[in-house]
Design a protein around this nucleic acid. Structure first.
Length: 301
DNA sequence: TCTCTTGCACCTCCATTGTG
DNA sequence: CACAATGGAGGTGCAAGAGA
């Protein structure tokens, strides 16, 4: 008999329009997807697809089945994430999590720890930009995404959980003259974070509040790369002070507060309700140990 | 209880086929 | 010709059963 997994593959084909595209999204080969669908059709004793040449579309039977499959998969996911018991039985299946690069290392570590307590839960973790992860969440390709808080109004079916704030700071090489932040910003080349991203927008706002004209040297989209360039004394940068970085004790870095008040970067997780259970377990293990941030309990629709 | 064998499910790889 | 589905061969992992 077909499994939930096969039904997820069926949904992926319905969403993406081909076996090949679906195969990419469910991490199988095209042949495996074809095999699963043949098995499903045999189990249900009806053709779910119209196969015309190299195109495959849902048949009338397939379309009729679609809402029921969506409901089944959603119910199964809810079963896995609810029930209040933190047992392995409640945490099985696959959890797909996206994260911005700056939290990937910490996430990977925590996912590994979670795997020891919930070995039946398969976790897929990958990095991406906030807006890309948001799109993938909307399309149902990931269950949750750890990102900078979006400004746009969120769809009702997604939940936002605030994890912590990261204040904006100035990052400079240890050997730079012991000037204050505005003087360093004015005198040293500026390493700019990609302003098309949410974090970049916050950095630009923070920069404007300092009322300093900077000499922009380079634009990058990786905070760790910016930190590495600062270590090599290529310039200075305004960045969110990454909660899981060791910049404060780095012998090559100086971390300076910004004199003008700036909005922090708020990091949190966007999740679909059915994934809330395992996500909460993951986040409790990750963030409750912290002392300087808000708890991971604040949610909104 | 442990080890080995067997059967099964499911997968990938690769060649083939059909079509735009 | 490129792309997508199909089919066959073979590999892998796991559970169940048999035997030491």
């Amino acid at each position: 008999m077909s499994s939930i997994r096969v039904l997820r593959t069926f949904l992926a084909i319905a969403r993406h329009g081909s076996f090949a595209a679906a195969a990419e999204h469910v991490a199988l080969t095209q042949a495996a997807v074809g095999l699963q669908m043949r098995t499903l059709e045999q189990d249900l004793n009806q053709a779910l697809f119209d196969r015309r040449g190299r195109t495959v579309t849902l048949s009338a039977n397939g379309y009729a089945l679609l809402p029921r499959v969506e409901e089944l998969v959603a119910r199964y996911a809810a079963l896995a994430s609810q029930g209040g018991s933190d047992t392995d039985a409640a945490f099985s299946g696959t959890l797909s999590i996206g994260a911005v690069v700056s939290v990937m290392g910490m996430m990977a570590l925590r996912v590994a720890r979670m795997k020891t307590s919930h070995p039946q839960l398969a976790v897929r973790l990958f990095s991406g930009k906030s807006f890309e992860l948001f799109d993938r969440l909307e399309r149902g390709e990931v269950d949750a995404a750890v990102v900078a808080q979006p400004t746009a109004r969120l769809p009702q079916r997604l939940q936002w959980i605030t994890l912590y704030d990261e204040p904006m700071v100035l990052l400079a090489h240890r050997d730079t003259a012991p000037l204050d932040a505005p003087s360093l910003l004015a005198s040293r080349p500026f390493l700019r974070f990609d302003p098309s991203q949410r974090t970049g927008v916050l950095i630009e706002q923070a920069l404007r509040r300092q009322r300093v004209v900077v000499q922009s040297l380079l634009e990058l989209n990786s905070l760790e790369t910016i930190a590495e360039l600062v270590r090599q004394d290529a310039g200075v940068a305004i960045v969110p002070r990454l909660r899981h970085s060791s910049w404060g004790t780095d012998p090559l870095l100086r971390v300076l507060p910004l004199p003008a008040e700036t909005a922090p970067r708020t990091v949190g997780v966007l999740t679909r309700p059915e994934a809330l259970g395992p996500v909460r377990v993951l986040l409790n293990g990750q963030f409750d140990a912290g002392s300087t941030s808000r708890s991971a309990a604040q949610t909104r629709g």
